[in-house]
Amino acid sequence: MAIEHEDVSRAGHLARLELDDADASRYVDDLGRILEMVDQLQGVDTDQVAPLAHPLDATQRLRADEVTEFDQRDHFQRCAPLVEEGLYLVPRVVE
């Protein structure tokens, strides 16, 4: 499946990456070649095959409903770019 300029722009926007036209063109090229390689998958008959999401056939273990974590806000916010009054700040979100 070929990849178009607009596919790359769309993926760039969904992934919140800033791509100018030159970037996008370069990626159309790169991604095109990668997808061409990936396209070998298309010829494989997998009608009778179930998808495999995890390499082991294990099942989810459940955690007891206990509060085990306590306030470490100041510690965690030491690596934060911008906080005030315990809140992380971002440019105004328009609802």
């Binding site: 005030e84 009054e85 809140l87 992380y88 700040l89 971002v90 979100v93």
Partner: peptide, 9 residues
Amino acid sequence: FHGMTGIDL
């Protein structure tokens, strides 16, 4: 917050 939004998680 100076024109910003605060996030409480």
